[in-house]
Simulated assay, not measured.
Amino acid sequence: MLQTTIAAIDAEIATRKNEKLGIKFSLDLFNELVKAGKITMATFTAFGTGAFPQQLPAFDGRYYAFIDLDLDGLQFEVGVPN
């Protein structure tokens, strides 16, 4: 089941024209993806400029990942900045 969800996340990312995006996950899904090694810590910087580097959780080491407690089960949402 987790592999199906990972495939759905990858498919949603593939529909985006811009690689600058974030993904919010339910707590359960976030924890499962950490166990599976799909969410790790990665360096992000302010507006991608290299300034103010911070280690933050990332899906596939590229996309900022965070927990949304309003999501349940294996829910996720891919978003892009406005």
Rank of each mutant, 00 (worst) to 15 (best):
F76T: 00
L27T: 07
K38D: 11
F47S: 12
A42N: 10
A58C: 06
I13C: 09
D60W: 06
V80S: 13
L27Q: 13
F76G: 00
Q3P: 02
I13E: 11
T40V: 13
D28V: 07
K17A: 14
K20M: 04
E32F: 00
F76V: 00
G48P: 01
V78M: 08
L71E: 02
K24P: 11
N18Y: 09
K17I: 05
N82T: 05
F25K: 00
L69R: 15
A14Y: 06
K17W: 03
A7D: 08
F25Q: 03
F44Q: 02
V78K: 05
A36W: 12
A42Y: 02
L2Y: 08
I9D: 03
E77V: 14
D60F: 11
V34I: 13
I6K: 11
L33G: 02
P57V: 04
Q3L: 07
R16Y: 04
A42V: 06
F44N: 02
E77M: 13
I6D: 00
I67N: 09
K17R: 11
D70E: 09
I13N: 07
I13K: 03
K35T: 12
N82F: 09
Q54P: 00
L33S: 03
K35P: 08
T49E: 03
I39W: 09
A65R: 00
Q75E: 15
G22H: 11
P53T: 09
A58D: 02
F59E: 01
E19K: 15
F52G: 04
T40I: 13
F25G: 03
I39V: 14
L27A: 12
I6G: 01
I39N: 06
K17Q: 14
T40N: 13
L21A: 07
P81Q: 08
T43E: 13
G50I: 00
I13A: 08
K35I: 12
Q75D: 14
L74C: 08
L21E: 12
P53W: 07
A46V: 10
A36K: 12
I9H: 02
Q54G: 04
D28T: 13
N82V: 08
T40E: 09
L69M: 12
F52Y: 14
D68E: 14
N82D: 13
P53Q: 11
L21I: 15
L71C: 06
F25H: 04
E19G: 04
G61W: 11
G22Y: 10
I67A: 07
E77D: 11
